[in-house]
Computed example of a mutant assay.
Amino acid sequence: MGLSDKLVGILNFLTFLISLPIIGAGIWLAKQHSSDCYRFLQGPVIALGVFVLLVSMAGFFGSCCRVTVLLWIYLIVMFLLIILLLVFTIFAFFVTNKTAGEIVGNKGYKEYKLGDYSTWLRRQVNKTSNWQKIESCLADSRFCDGLRNVYPTKVDFDRANLSPIQSGCCKPPTICGCSFVNATYWNNCTNSLADPDCGIYTTNSTSLCFDCNSCKAGVLQNVTKDWRKVAQINIIFLVFLIVVYAVGCCAFKNVKRRGYQKGIF
């Protein structure tokens, strides 16, 4: 077995090992979480793991057993995967290139506006089917409830380092001029016409400002940060895939050359 064959076998064996925890994570999500918070995540996670598993097996057996058909399939799928990752990485940087969030009234947290994000991201979060799943997550997790104990007074709350989702979904926008009762209960809004979100906010702990544009903006802020991280990691992964693909091409040439020498081709 040539050096390139061994390298393809080793690299794809490592990829095979990586695919197992990906599949395991998807199965864990399927068994542990029945709510819409995680239901829409488990399918893509399992599909990704199975895809990586099959590709790595094709490359491993194709190089080690010198099966030309498997190497053909492996190289074609690997090429498509590289192209898709490259397109996604460029797209991710493009739609997340804007910075958002501003401090209002010397607060310790920032507030976010939906209009600050790319048109494509706004379109996705405004889709009823997408937002219903996200809103279900917000209601099920009840992550806003803990703010009342952590920040019991107005002074404490003003100094709080809230996450984008807490800032946008757990309270009305500052511009509404609402009075603080506790971290999730605001009333007597003096400027209720300043923003459409002022009329959407409710003191009901299961809805609060979950339907507000500020809440959607907070979600997009988190998505933007995560996508930037994924895009940066993808660059490293792309370099790795290109190296594996190049070695795979060498292994394919070796297998094909041996086939010619034996009169197979």
Score class of each variant (00 low, 15 high):
22 I>D: 02
78 M>F: 07
188 N>T: 13
152 P>E: 01
176 C>D: 00
138 L>M: 08
147 L>M: 04
197 D>S: 01
256 K>N: 13
207 S>E: 14
192 S>C: 10
167 S>D: 08
65 C>T: 12
33 H>V: 14
12 N>Y: 06
111 E>S: 05
47 A>T: 14
73 I>D: 02
139 A>T: 15
59 G>L: 01
168 G>A: 03
74 Y>A: 01
87 V>Q: 09
42 Q>C: 09
215 C>F: 05
161 N>W: 09
160 A>L: 00
55 V>N: 02
225 K>Q: 12
49 G>C: 08
78 M>A: 11
129 S>P: 00
233 I>L: 11
187 N>V: 15
230 V>Y: 02
58 A>K: 00
182 N>C: 00
40 F>N: 13
133 K>W: 11
129 S>V: 15
83 I>Q: 10
44 P>N: 03
174 T>H: 10
28 W>D: 09
120 W>L: 08
3 L>Q: 11
205 S>Y: 11
179 S>C: 09
240 F>K: 05
119 T>W: 08
102 E>D: 13
122 R>D: 12
231 A>W: 00
4 S>P: 08
84 L>E: 13
43 G>I: 15
203 T>C: 05
189 C>A: 08
254 N>L: 04
29 L>F: 13
18 I>W: 01
258 R>N: 14
195 D>M: 04
124 Q>H: 11
238 L>W: 06
100 A>K: 06
106 N>H: 13
240 F>L: 10
107 K>L: 11
108 G>L: 06
19 S>G: 05
86 L>R: 07
66 R>I: 11
235 I>E: 09
239 V>W: 10
171 K>T: 14
238 L>P: 03
183 A>Q: 02
205 S>C: 04
110 K>S: 13
114 L>W: 00
92 A>C: 03
140 D>I: 08
118 S>K: 03
232 Q>D: 12
216 K>H: 10
65 C>V: 14
58 A>L: 02
43 G>W: 13
114 L>H: 03
153 T>Y: 01
242 I>H: 07
189 C>M: 05
253 K>I: 13
220 L>S: 00
94 F>R: 09
229 K>A: 14
100 A>G: 03
255 V>A: 00
2 G>Y: 06
248 G>F: 03
201 Y>R: 02
196 P>G: 02
31 K>Y: 11
233 I>S: 11
219 V>G: 00
238 L>K: 07
16 F>V: 07
50 V>R: 06
60 F>G: 04
199 G>Q: 06
227 W>A: 14
